[in-house]
Design a binder for these strands. Structure first.
Length: 275
DNA sequence: ATGCATGAGGT
DNA sequence: CCTCATGCATA
């Protein structure tokens, strides 16, 4: 009845990304990344047979894990910046569908060519910082930037949430995501600074929804167990997920999503290289 | 700032 | 069912 009718005006976001603008965020880059990956080693069959052993083992590990108190256990480091991740030998020379002439539009410096400098982690890091600094100077919040993006009228680009802007600034997005967003945010920045020079800007607001979504909260003990399982098998089968879900008394889908999110987390720029 | 969730596109 | 980009809700 009222499960999920109208949330927010889903502008033209992901579903309509004109694949002739940015290095198609999906498929291609995926293959490239995999090709560049060092080693996709074991961890598949060894655990196949001993399920129960695995679970027990993992929980035991979890216990030890917390006892030692994060000495080096999990792959995440909240402070690990990605400089060592320069493993981007994938010559970016392929994805440049020349949009040059459109330079007159936004001001010639926006989303034109995608050169090495745009894919360089260091450059992205530097840009993210400059971006935040200038954004603040403009007196604009992350949320403001997000909604203002829709005013740029860039084909295929709609608004973004405060979450995404925040993640961009803190580099907690995938490398590819950073690369795709950079030109857009850069265009906004220039636009905003130019507009301010003249007069003022016009903040954009949109409707207040109805229908709240509830966020499941996984308790610390369960989370520890999940982390332990994850350390041993990041991609459990449906059956294993079910087993884990039952042991931890969580809904199977919650567990499945938790693993998905955990995998994504590992791939974020800030965490990917250092572990 | 970040945890859990959704949906599109791919296997 | 997965990966990825994103977002709502919330600490």
């Amino acid at each position: 009845m009222m499960s999920m009718n109208s949330k927010q005006p889903h502008f033209a976001m992901h579903p309509t990304l004109p694949e002739h603008k940015y290095p198609s965020l999906h498929s291609s880059s995926e293959a490239i990344r995999r090709a560049c990956l060092p080693t996709p080693p074991l961890q598949s069959n060894i655990f196949a047979s001993l399920d129960e052993t695995l679970l027990a083992r993992a929980e035991a590990l979890a216990a030890v894990d917390i006892a030692v108190s994060q000495g080096k256990s999990h792959p995440f480091k909240p402070d690990a910046t990605y400089h060592t991740m320069n493993s981007v030998p994938c010559t970016s020379t392929s994805t440049v569908p020349l949009v040059a002439s459109a330079a007159a539009v936004v001001g010639a410096a926006g989303l034109a060519s995608i050169c090495d400098s745009d894919t360089d982690p260091r450059e992205l890091e530097a840009f993210a910082e400059r971006f935040k600094q200038r954004r603040i100077k403009l007196g604009v919040t992350q949320a403001d930037v997000g909604s203002a993006l829709a005013n740029l009228k860039i084909p295929g680009v709609g608004s973004l949430s405060q979450s995404t802007i925040c993640r961009f600034e803190s580099l907690t997005l995938s490398h590819n995501n950073m690369i795709a967003l950079k030109p857009i945010l850069q265009a906004w920045l220039e636009e905003a600074e130019g507009a301010q020079r003249e007069k003022m800007n016009k903040p954009e607001l949109f409707n207040g929804g109805e229908k709240k979504r509830k966020r499941t909260s996984i308790a610390a003990p369960e989370k520890r167990s999940l982390e332990a399982y994850f350390a041993v098998q990041p991609r459990p089968s449906s059956e294993k997920i079910a087993a884990i879900a039952e042991k931890l008394d969580l809904k199977k889908n919650v567990v499945r999503v938790w693993f998905c999110n955990q995998r994504q987390k590992q791939k974020r720029m800030k965490f990917s290289a250092t572990y």
